[in-house]
Amino acid sequence: MAESTEFAYERAFEAHWTDVFRFALAWTNDWSEAEDLAQEAFVRLWNHRAGLDWERPVLPWLLVATRRLATDRFRRLRRRLVAFSEPASLDAAVQARWLDVSAAMSGLSPLERAALVMTAVEGTSYEEAAGVLGTTAGALRAAVSRARTKLEAA
């Protein structure tokens, strides 16, 4: 049983790390922070592995965990104590492109960014995205609309 749980965890890591990272990137607009958050979300999944129903999709659990980790107040305080670091895992050309994209997205709130990316890029339904983001589908539509308006005006 322990072996199968471990296997399920590894499968989840392989299947969903990218999804978790992209969600964290949309929420934070910070590459290094997103890498940290993805790592921490999977540590949390590991810690909860014994009590999880692995027959059910684990991605929503991971995304909610990521959002909660990102909004943890002490985490935000800790982040203030560490210097900004460029994403070491990117080559120079991609890094430059990321700086342009992140600057364009910086005028959006975390909710607006995540709502827009989830629905417009990842193809998540409004209902599903609202569940992950802890809001209603109506509020999510309004956030997406605001985000579009801001990006067009930027």
């Binding site: 492109r97 827009l116 417009a120 890029v121 985000a147 579009r148």
Partner: peptide
């Protein structure tokens, strides 16, 4: 413009390595 930004976002985010 917002779609172009999102396309760029998608392209850059896909460079992430697990």
């Amino acid at each position: 413009r917002s779609d172009r930004i999102l396309q760029d976002w998608d392209a850059v985010a896909s460079q992430a390595r697990r």
